[in-house]
Amino acid sequence: MGFFDKIKAGLTRTKENISNIGHSFDQLFAGELDDDFYDELEETLILSDMGVETAMKAVEELRRRAKAEKIKNAEEGRECLRAILTEFLEVGDLSLKLDTKPSVALFIGVNGVGKTTTIGKLSAHLKGEGRRVLMAAADTFRAAAADQLEIWSQRCGVDIVRQHEGADPAAVVFDALSAAKARGTDVVLVDTAGRLHNKQNLMNELNKISRILDRELPGADRETLLVLDATTGQNGLIQAKQFKEAAGITGIVLTKLDGSAKGGIVIAIAQELGVPVKFIGVGEGIDDLMPFEPAEFVKAFV
C-alpha cells in the first residue's frame, strides 16, 4: 500500500467526523463558490482541527485566488484549495539531514506520544537504506522505556546503549556517541524522557544532552524531532509551541494519524510553527512510519 492509500485509509475518521458534524468536502465542492460556500468551508476546516487562524487564512487565500483566476467551477476550486494547503505544509526541508558519520536524531515529546515506537520504526527505515543505526536509551526515568527500546533494537537488529534506571541521561548519550564512533555507526537515535513540557528540569536535561553532542560531535548533522500524538489535536499544537521555545526543533513526527478524527492538525502545526512535518505514523506495523509527502496528504485530506 502506497503513501496515498495509507493516508486515505488513515484519514477515514477525519472524513467521518466532518460528515457527521457538517459538510464533507465532496458536498462542499458540488456547488457554487459563493459566500455560503466560503462560510461552510471555513467551518469544515475548523472541524478538521486545522485551527481557526489557519482555516481563515486558507479560505481567504482561496477567495483571493478564485477572484484573480476567475475560478467558478467547484472542481477547480478544490484543486486551488489543495495547492494552497500543500504550500502551507511546505515550510522547510522535509527530509532528514543525517549525512555526517555519525549523525544524531534526538527525539523529544511528552510521555505516551509514541517516541520509543517511532525510534524503533525509524531504525528499521534507516537500516533498510543500508545505514548502521545505534539507539541510546536516554529516558532513564522509566525502566520500561529502556526495556521497550531494547525490544525494538532486537526486532530491528540494531545496537543499543543503555544504563540502569535513574542514570544520568547525558552520560548515556556520551556512552552512545563513544560506541558510535568506535563501531562506525551512521546514525544515533536518542530517546529522551517525556515528563511534562513545562518542567524546567526536563529542559535543563535536554540542554545538557545538547552540550554533550556539541562537544563530542562538533559539526555533525543533528535533527531534533518532536513526536506528537495526532489524536490530541490542538493540545498537541500547544505542546509543540512550548517545546519549540524551550528546546528548538527541526521537525515533527506525527503519530497515530490513523486514530485521529481530526487530521487537519498536520496543517495547523506546520503553518503555525513554521516547522516541517517530516514523518507520520499511520498504523501499528513496523513499516507504518512514512516520510511525509504534503501534496499526497492534501489530496487524501480534501
Rank of each mutant, 00 (worst) to 15 (best):
residue 170 A to T: 13
residue 170 A to Q: 15
residue 170 A to W: 09
residue 172 V to T: 11
residue 172 V to K: 13
residue 172 V to C: 02
residue 173 V to A: 08
residue 174 F to W: 15
residue 175 D to A: 12
residue 176 A to M: 06
residue 176 A to L: 04
residue 176 A to E: 07
residue 177 L to T: 11
residue 178 S to P: 00
residue 178 S to C: 04
residue 180 A to D: 05
residue 181 K to I: 10
residue 181 K to S: 01
residue 181 K to F: 11
residue 182 A to W: 03
residue 183 R to T: 09
residue 183 R to E: 05
residue 185 T to M: 00
residue 185 T to N: 11
residue 185 T to S: 03
residue 186 D to T: 13
residue 187 V to D: 08
residue 188 V to D: 09
residue 189 L to R: 13
residue 189 L to I: 10
residue 189 L to G: 06
residue 190 V to I: 15
residue 192 T to V: 07
residue 192 T to Y: 12
residue 193 A to Q: 05
residue 194 G to M: 05
residue 195 R to M: 01
residue 196 L to C: 01
residue 198 N to L: 03
residue 198 N to R: 13
residue 199 K to M: 09
residue 200 Q to D: 08
residue 201 N to Y: 08
residue 201 N to W: 10
residue 201 N to C: 03
residue 201 N to E: 10
residue 203 M to G: 04
residue 204 N to V: 00
residue 205 E to C: 08
residue 205 E to A: 09
residue 205 E to D: 09
residue 207 N to A: 14
residue 207 N to F: 00
residue 208 K to W: 07
residue 208 K to I: 09
residue 209 I to Y: 10
residue 210 S to D: 15
residue 210 S to C: 00
residue 210 S to A: 11
residue 213 L to R: 15
residue 213 L to E: 12
residue 214 D to N: 12
residue 215 R to G: 04
residue 216 E to F: 15
residue 216 E to P: 00
residue 217 L to T: 09
residue 217 L to Y: 12
residue 217 L to S: 10
residue 217 L to I: 01
residue 218 P to I: 11
residue 218 P to A: 14
residue 218 P to E: 12
residue 219 G to K: 14
residue 219 G to D: 03
residue 220 A to L: 04
residue 221 D to L: 03
residue 222 R to Y: 01
residue 222 R to Q: 15
residue 226 L to C: 05
residue 227 V to C: 04
residue 227 V to G: 01
residue 228 L to P: 03
residue 229 D to F: 02
residue 229 D to G: 02
residue 230 A to E: 04
residue 231 T to Q: 11
residue 232 T to C: 00
residue 233 G to W: 08
residue 234 Q to G: 07
residue 235 N to L: 02
residue 236 G to A: 09
residue 237 L to Y: 08
residue 238 I to V: 13
residue 240 A to Q: 09
residue 241 K to E: 03
residue 241 K to R: 15
residue 242 Q to F: 07
residue 242 Q to S: 05
residue 245 E to S: 13
residue 245 E to A: 14
residue 247 A to L: 11
residue 248 G to A: 15
residue 248 G to H: 10
residue 249 I to T: 02
residue 249 I to Q: 03
residue 251 G to D: 03
residue 253 V to D: 01
residue 253 V to Q: 04
residue 253 V to A: 07
residue 255 T to Y: 08
residue 256 K to F: 09
